[in-house]
Nucleic acid binder design. Structure first.
Length: 438
RNA sequence: CGGGGCAUAGCGCAGUCUGGUAGCGCACCUGCUUUGGGAGCAGGGGGUCGCAGGUUCGAAUCCUGCUGCCCCGACCA
């Protein structure tokens, strides 16, 4: 993408409403535009990041055997009356009436809809296990939206729902999502720690929150050092096999949010192994049994021919929140530092002297060859000054900056800068290409 | 939902106390100079001062009501 033809509205000064660093940087880097409290438009750079996060979440859901569907944002209220949640949910639910005065709502979650889909088609244990997920916008009319996309009212969530014949099978489904989540956050470049959680109003007894460590996180978390170094299950993990040893290993360490913190248990850990840090919740998994299947009549026949309510679990990832959380976890005074996996572009190609025939030619050549090799490049072909270009590249945080100027080019050389470390290296054009394509 | 704060040009702000023809910086447009870490000079465009009432000869400024947004606390992907 040529910067001169892109839409990247950067802000030099921070809008006063933005208090935390991810919100400030997302606004300054032209990623989002606030439309109302907790409601945002995603601008090109932000959308690219959102799409990358979504793609990784999707790949790992698929790998774990979940099947993607897409449920509506607007749901009929009837289903919620059936489940018994219509009155319980309160003002957080955005209630809407259509032209015929039918009660509708903007979905804050989709247990009711997915249970309705399930009960309409599945009758036998032979069709289980089943895990249906979707990545869809949700709306929760929070009392207090804040922190930009970290707690918006409208947010993009991956929500998966598992269906099993009994609790033991449901536990296996839960384990599959547990492992999928470990892989997902790791691929995003984050250290996420599963912490035992309250199952809350949704009910059930198996529940973990996935918390990433970030110095600017919302809540205080406590864990045992060893959990940070546990190996992430590999891509070829057998999701049909026994995952219990992996879960046992991860849950053998102490890990708790402030609410669940047990000072005595924590004190029993050797002092050198205690970690007390800030954290951001980026995922939550639950097993809730027959909480919805029972009232909504989602039953399957077992091998004995007897129909029983299906056992369910739900598994959420805050996709849009992750965009903010990634920045909270990775930035410096100059701006964002994107992990390679979610960077909106891999390389920022900086033309130091547009109009100079040799520099233009070298940049065009590099741009074409990188694009041909499938490397995503943001080519700064504008005639802004050097300082402004560098500042912009640092702000938007692309992993690599490839700097081409007349000075180096005279020696046949370009400069490659790694955003995360600030290291700059001068090398030949071919060497730079090899580095970026390899 | 309780407590606090803010609303004046795209962004950041001054002006409000003490009423008198709306200003600064950045950004934007034109020209010249500059050109490896957010350039300089000169010229220019852009605002029903959040909305609605009221007081007054006159309201960004005073009064009343409303709306929007932010921050702190209890809840959440």
């Amino acid at each position: 993408m040529r910067l001169s033809r892109y839409f990247l509205p950067l802000l030099k000064e921070t809008p006063k409403e933005a208090e935390i660093v991810s919100h400030r940087l997302m606004l300054r880097a032209g990623m989002i535009r606030q439309q109302a409290a907790g409601i945002y438009s995603w601008l090109p750079l932000g959308l690219r990041v959102l799409d990358k996060i979504e793609a990784i979440v999707r790949e790992e859901q698929n790998r774990a055997g979940a099947v993607e569907i897409l449920m509506p944002t607007v749901q009929p209220a009837d289903l919620w009356v059936e489940s018994g949640r219509y009155n319980d949910y309160g003002k957080e639910m955005l209630r809407i009436t259509d032209r015929l005065d039918r009660a509708m709502l903007f979905g804050p979650t989709a247990e009711e809809v997915v249970t309705d889909i399930f009960r309409s088609y599945v009758r036998s244990y032979k069709n289980l296990p089943l895990n249906l997920y979707n990545i869809q916008w949700k709306f929760r009319d929070e009392r207090r939206p804040r922190f930009g996309v970290m707690r918006g009212r409208e947010f993009l969530m991956k929500d998966a729902y598992s269906f099993d014949v009994d609790q033991d099978r449901a536990r296996e489904a839960y384990y599959r999502m547990f492992v999928a989540y470990l892989r997902t956050y790791s691929r995003l470049g984050l250290t996420a720690i599963p912490m035992r959680a309250d199952s809350g109003p949704i009910g059930g007894d198996m529940s973990h929150e996935f918390i990433i460590l970030a110095s600017t996180g919302e809540s205080q978390v406590f864990c045992e050092k060893g959990v940070l170094d546990l190996p992430i299950p590999p891509a070829d993990t057998d999701f049909q096999g026994d995952l219990k040893p992996i879960i046992d290993e991860w849950t053998s360490f102490y890990a708790a949010t402030e609410e669940k913190h047990d000072e005595a248990a924590f004190a029993a850990i050797p002092e050198a192994d205690r970690v007390s840090a800030r954290g951001i919740e980026v995922g939550h998994i639950f097993y809730f049994g027959t909480k919805y299947s029972e009232p909504m009549g989602a039953r399957v026949a077992g091998p004995d021919g007897v129909e029983r309510p299906v056992h369910m679990g739900s598994y959420g990832v805050g996709v849009s929140r992750l965009a903010g959380a990634l920045i909270e976890a990775s930035h410096d005074d100059a701006g964002i530092i994107w992990p390679d996996a979610v960077a909106p572009f891999a390389v920022g190609l900086v033309n130091m002297k547009p109009g100079d025939a040799a520099v233009d030619a070298a940049c065009e050549d590099l741009y074409a060859r990188l694009e041909a090799a499938g490397v995503e490049v943001l080519y700064d072909d504008t005639d802004a000054r050097a300082g402004a270009k560098f500042a912009m590249m640092d702000l938007i945080g692309l992993p690599w900056q490839l700097i081409v100027g007349p000075r180096g080019l005279a020696q046949g050389e370009v400069e490659l800068k790694r955003r995360a470390t600030g290291e700059r290296e001068t090398m030949s054009i071919e060497a730079a290409l090899n580095r970026l394509v390899g």
